[in-house]
């Protein structure tokens, strides 16, 4: 099949993820949008592994998954911690440095 189409799909998904990250103010939804962008990057890696006929891209996608899992655990615990002190998950609520 034509690998260009999959790359375009990955670009569209990345764009939608960026859109959500910039518009949504719920920290959890914004975080999920980051996950969507990571998934789009993974899709590019797997497609390129298919194009080049080697497995290196898939190994890289595995490493991205591991890093994403680690990132989610730490990020979510930070969100819970911010919620405890500000009683809100809105990204606008964490404005201690601004004041």
């Amino acid at each position: 099949m034509n690998p260009d189409l999959v790359l375009w799909l990955a670009a569209i998904l990345f764009g939608i993820g960026a859109l959500g990250l910039m518009t949504r103010r719920n920290a959890l939804v914004a975080f999920m949008c980051v996950e969507l962008m990571l998934n789009a990057a993974n899709l590019v890696l797997v497609t390129m592994s298919n194009v080049h006929g080697g497995l290196d891209g898939q190994v890289a996608a595995f490493f991205v998954m591991v890093v994403a899992a680690a990132e989610v655990t730490v990020g979510l615990s930070i969100i819970v911690m911010v919620y405890r002190s500000r009683r809100s998950t809105s990204v606008d609520a964490a404005n201690l440095l601004k004041q």
């Binding site: 034509n2 298919n50 006929g53």
Partner: peptide, 10 residues
């Protein structure tokens, strides 16, 4: 978004 070569397959 433009791959020059056709997909080699895995």
């Amino acid at each position: 978004g433009h791959v020059a070569a056709a997909s080699a397959g895995l």
